[in-house]
């Protein structure tokens, strides 16, 4: 993907599926790979999560680097270390290239365990190649600073409590444009709680402020309302609540993310047809869509 002369961010979906990869004819439109999203702005490359989708990103990065003969400098931000968010890392080709600079960031709650977790999934009991085979200049860090500067981009983050083990949401800002990546969180526990308390109200305000007027919000919307009743406490948000929150925060585009493995292309098309027209004609207008593998958005 060319960066072009413009200073746009290019956001690409490489994996949009939650929980487990779902190859097959009935998922080929929205995709079966687990979470991975890249943001490119000029020479800066940010990656969110290393689900199975990161494999195809790696192939494209290698092809682009070979064409440009440029060394790669990549910044990978992990929302958390559940399987579906890290399982593609051993198949990420740039990590095996001498000359690649790869910085992996994760929650400060993990501390030094982040590296242990990532190394652990490449233990020879689970995978034939150990992490020591990575020839890249690799650095694994906790996000300890409040904001991180990468080229012209600013990345800031917040912890998310309502997911088993916790997760982190990230926001990328440049030239007044904002992209938020906020997956794997059960917003119903904050915004739809049976009992309100000050702590939950503060969390809600903090979330709304973080996503306020985002040009693109990529957010967990795994369940229908009906499904949510069965999976309460599993750490994912119901679609109708997410739509309501995005509208309150005057988000411009909402990419619903982390699709349930049981949702086929037909299901997701139906959700889109039901919901999108209402929000496109609403006030404020908001373009909602179900994120789809193989799509690059200009922001």
């Amino acid at each position: 993907m060319s960066s072009g002369q413009s200073a746009k961010m290019y956001v690409t979906f490489w994996g949009t599926r939650g929980s487990i990869s779902t190859p097959g004819r009935n998922t080929e439109k929205y995709g079966g790979n687990t979470p991975c999203v890249s943001v490119q702005h000029r020479d800066a490359h940010i990656i969110f999560d290393a689900g199975t989708g990161i494999r195809n990103l790696g192939i494209e990065l290698i092809e682009t680097a070979a064409a440009n003969s440029d060394p790669m400098s990549l910044h990978l931000f992990l929302s958390h270390t559940h399987w579906d968010h890290i399982q593609g890392l051993p198949f990420f080709q740039p990590a095996y290239y001498n000359g690649t600079k790869l910085i992996i960031y994760g929650s400060p709650k993990k501390e030094r365990f982040l590296e242990a977790v990532l190394r652990g999934q490449m233990d020879n009991e689970y995978f034939p190649v150990e992490m020591s085979a990575f020839a890249a200049d690799l650095s694994i860090r906790e996000v300890s600073e409040e904001t991180i500067r990468i080229g012209d981009l600013t990345v800031d983050w917040q912890e998310q409590n309502f997911h088993p083990g916790g997760s982190v949401r990230y926001r990328v800002t440049v030239d007044g444009k904002k992209v938020v990546y906020a997956t794997d969180v059960e917003l119903n526990s904050i915004f739809d709680a049976k009992v309100e308390n000050d702590e939950l109200l503060a969390m809600g305000e903090e979330y709304l402020e973080f996503i306020d007027t985002a040009d693109l919000l990529i957010a967990d919307g795994q369940y229908t309302d009906e499904e949510y009743q069965k999976y309460r406490g599993w750490g994912h948000t119901s679609i109708p609540l997410l739509l309501e929150i995005a509208q309150r925060a005057k988000v411009k585009q909402l990419a619903i993310f982390h699709h349930d493995p049981q949702h086929s292309d037909k299901n997701l098309d139906e959700f889109w047809r039901e919901q999108s027209p209402h929000f496109l004609s609403g006030d404020p207008q908001i373009n909602i869509f179900w994120s789809r593998e193989g799509v690059t958005l200009p922001i």
Binding site: Y10, F289, V295, T296, P298
Partner: peptide, 18 residues
Amino acid sequence: LDSTNGTMVNGVSIKKCV
């Protein structure tokens, strides 16, 4: 191709799309 008015697929402005 960096057009003036952009290209949309299924209502979403895209740079590239399968």
